[in-house]
Structures are given as C-alpha cells and as structure tokens.
Amino acid sequence: MEQAYEATRRAFSQTLLRLAKNNRHIVAMTSDSRGSVTLNAYAEELPEQYIEMGIAEQNLVSAASGLTSFGFVPFVCSPACFLSMRSIEQVKVDVAYSATNVKLIGISAGVSYGALGMSHHSLQDFAVMRAIPNLAIIAPCDAVQTEAVTEVIAAFQGPVYVRLGRNPVSQVYAPGTDCFQWGKAVELAVGNDVTIIATGEVVQAAVTAAKQLRQQGIKARVLNMHTIKPLDNEAVLRAARETRAIITVEEHSVMGGLGGAVAEVLGQHQPCPLRIMAIADEVTPSGSQSELLAHYGLDAAGITACVTGVAREAARDRAFK
C-alpha cells in the first residue's frame, strides 16, 4: 500500500493559518522557532497575528497568558524540550493555574531531534505536564489527526498542551477522516487477546505490529490514546476486562507518561498484566529518531516481539489459574 508521509508540525502550521485567516483573535507566538515550527508562510500572510518573542521561553509563555486578557487565543509554538522544561513554572502558574486560554504547541518532541542529544529530547513532557491540574494534553499520531486536533483546540476555551513531531510520519488516517474526539481513545484494530495502547507518532508502528501479530494468531486490540489527559479511563478498564494484558507504547520516558497514566488507572481499579514500552530512564545513545526508536523497541518489530512474549505469558498464567 502506498503510504503518505507528512510532518505533524507542518499539518499544524497549515491548519493554523487557515483558522487564523477567519479568526483575528488567533495569534501564533514563537521563540525564534518560526522556521522550525514551519510558520514562515503564516508570519508573512498574517503579520498582525504573529509575535516573535526571541529565545526566551519563560517570557513567551507568561506573555501569552497576558494576551488572553484582550481576547486573543495564543498558540505558543516552541520546541517541546524547552517549552515543557524551561517554562514549566510559567505553564503551571500563568497558564494552568490562572486558567488562561493558551495553547501550548510543543514541536519536535520525543527523540525527533535524534543525534542532537538529550538537551533536545523531550521525554519528560507528559510526566511534568500531567501533574499540573487544569491542563489537557494531546499527542496526535499523524498529520490528519493533527489537523483535527488543531481545529478542536482553537475552539476550546482553556489551556492545552499539544505534542507534535518533527519528521514526516506515515499516515494512520486517510485525509478527511473524523479521527479526534476529545478524551476518547480510538480503536484502530479489533482484538481480544491483548491490547496495545499507543500515543503519538508510534501509533503507526503499533498498527503495523497488530497486523504482524494477527499472522501469528494473536489478536491485538490497538487503541490510539491521543488524549493523555484527561485519559480515557473507560477504554483502559474495558481493555483490562476484555483482554489478557495491556502494552503501552510511547516516545517518552518510561516514567510518568502514558504507561504511568495507564498504570495508575489499572492499579487502582482493575489490576491486569501491563508492559510499558518507552524510552529507558537513561541518557540515550547517539542516533537518528528511527534508530533510537528501534533501539528501544518502539518500532513495529520491537512491539511485535514484546507483545508476543506478553501474550504467551498471559496465556500461560491463565492456564495455571
């Protein structure tokens, strides 16, 4: 099958330009990140709705919260590694606590900067953002879903963090698909043996893995958990009841991300075998995004291998009961 590839940041900037042309309250703000967000066309077409803040992420986020006082809807666009760490206190106090209508757009998240190293990797953003009340967290899986997410959050009143990638990703969804409902996981593959819950750009690998698993006779349910917060607890609990084990897949630290969120729900309400596939709690080796994802088993082959093992263990445990 012919696969289309597009970067989520590009889908975001094109959608934002379209929306902003019809809504003068939308403003895009950057931290010398206009090019890396792919906002050049936006800035040229809508200079009155574009604000450059320089390399000063703390001021960037606080100033955005100030702009909401005059009805603006600021989209703060900055590399996720800096936005989620350098300005995390501004996110906490000026955005979430002050309940200002700011949209935080973290681009080039996860290990998408590849060999640029740990300073540029964003592997803690889910963890820190999740612990802040009054802040929604969304990680679209491809360009089509990014477009849908951008439309929804532009109309939503309240703080949101959206995590986007850098490199072109294969499309999970055909263009025009209705693929984003706030806080509702999307079932991308049907199955009752095990459930793979994935988020962001590794969702595609989970879908491919499910196809490979089916050839081995393992029917894996795949959930696209695009909304990390509020988490679709019901979908997680249903998976725990209806399938034998859950495997979470994310381009984030093994600590405090999707896996942590799922574990919190399962541990308290429906204990069930769980495997968290994520980036280990260590300084990553040098490598491209795809090399690093493969190194940590976050590609289709790695997910297939992990799920095969988990399914085998789950079946054995069940046989002994």
């Binding site: 001021n59 606080s62 005059f70 603006f72």
Partner: peptide, 12 residues
C-alpha cells in the same frame, strides 16, 4: 512578562 503580554495585547 504577563503585563508585557497584556500591553502588547492592548496594542494589537
């Protein structure tokens, strides 16, 4: 920072 954003918002 917040005030500077407000002042910029007022101008815009």
């Amino acid at each position: 920072s917040v005030g500077m954003g407000m002042a910029l918002g007022a101008k815009r």
